[in-house]
């Protein structure tokens, strides 16, 4: 008597596991892990795994903001530029004698202001996110080169580098930055999955017309998403200074590609309304593992970009195909 229901509940659990959006990305992550550990025994050393986590911090944090924006069916091409704006401003201000806490706060504020500009243009004037953020990318990149006269400079302040401090955990070396990133994931996950705001982010990305008809203030919601994302990019700037005590206007050139790849590989649809942060964390780790594993294998960074580019196209193609089936 019991066996049929036990069987069907077993089946429904299996169905649930396969149906859970993050399972696919997790399998991809494990597959890359297996491949790289077979080709290089050093890959699985706790020291190397710690390094992967640390290398994932910047892209992983930027990908949180990118996820929010892509969930609304938007895209942010200024993600790296806004983060670099944060590092340059914080570094310049601190180096010219400002209190480092104030310097960092002002830098985060400047990043957030860039989000206000992007969100305002997208929500208020209904301009396409692609064009708005591309424009902001150009503006910020040029402005930064003018401010910093094209050159990188070192930032040695203790507070600005604070996120690079480490704690040891069973041989793992975690930076404060890694912990801050994980806390941000937890916080934004809660907002997305447990609050009305998060529910409305999904609804607006899925069907903005339906969202408007049920009375969701679509413009205000979009603005809040771009502002929160840019604030997170500002935090990412602090984490970046903790990783490398250097502010470089030419840094994070691949941040667009890497953050979008992390989001899309993580199962969030570019069409909006589908996906989530857990997948993005896994996606960011996939990008991190890929770059780390290829570096260990002695492969030129240009090949890493090439492979990441292929990966994002494959992920988008899969998204398109599964969407067509529905």
């Amino acid at each position: 008597m019991n066996s049929p229901s036990a069987l069907s509940s077993g089946r429904s659990i299996a169905k649930k596991v396969i149906g859970t959006p993050s399972v696919g990305p997790l399998l991809v992550l494990l597959a890359f892990g297996v491949i790289f550990s077979l080709t290089n025994p050093r890959f699985l050393a706790t020291q190397n795994l710690s390094i992967i986590l640390q290398q994932t911090v910047i892209i992983g944090t930027l990908a949180i903001g990118q996820t929010l924006i892509i969930l609304t069916a938007g895209i942010d091409l200024a993600v790296g530029a806004i983060c670099v704006l944060g590092t340059i401003l914080a570094g310049k201000l601190a180096n010219s004698g400002y209190d480092p806490v104030l310097a960092m706060a002002l830098a985060v504020l400047a990043c957030t202001a860039a989000g206000v500009a992007a969100g305002g243009l997208i929500a208020g004037l209904r301009l396409p996110p692609f064009i708005v953020t591309l424009g902001i990318l150009g503006i910020i990149t040029a402005a930064l080169r003018l401010i910093s006269a094209g050159g990188a400079f070192s930032v040695t302040d203790a507070f600005l580098g604070w996120t690079g401090n480490t704690i040891r955990l069973n041989g793992f070396i975690l930076t404060y930055g890694v912990i801050i990133m994980l806390l941000l994931y937890g916080l934004i996950w809660f907002l997305l999955n447990q609050t009305q705001w998060g529910r409305h982010v999904y609804a607006v990305g899925n069907n903005p017309e339906a969202a408007r008809l049920v009375g969701i203030p679509v413009g205000r919601l979009l603005l809040s998403v771009y502002v929160l994302a840019a604030f997170i990019y500002g935090i990412a700037a602090w984490l970046a200074l903790g990783r490398i005590p250097n502010a470089d206007p030419n840094a994070l050139q691949t941040a667009n590609l890497d953050s979008i790849t992390a989001v899309v590989i993580g199962g969030t649809s570019l069409f909006g309304g589908r996906g989530g942060l857990l997948g993005t964390l896994i996606g960011a780790l996939i990008v991190g593992v890929l770059r780390n594993g290829l570096t260990l294998a002695g492969i030129d960074p240009l090949w890493q970009d090439l492979i990441t580019g292929i990966l994002v196209i494959v992920a988008v193609a899969l998204d398109q195909l599964t969407r067509g089936k529905r």
Binding site: A203, V214, I216, G273
Partner: peptide
């Protein structure tokens, strides 16, 4: 309440989420 011709539902949300869309209970 009006049900518009273009199906005014969010397909990625579930039934309960659609019924409460814009009127979520905390």
């Amino acid at each position: 309440e009006t049900v518009y011709q273009e199906l005014a539902v969010a397909t990625q949300l579930n039934i309960a989420q659609n019924l409460y869309l814009g009127r979520e209970v905390r």
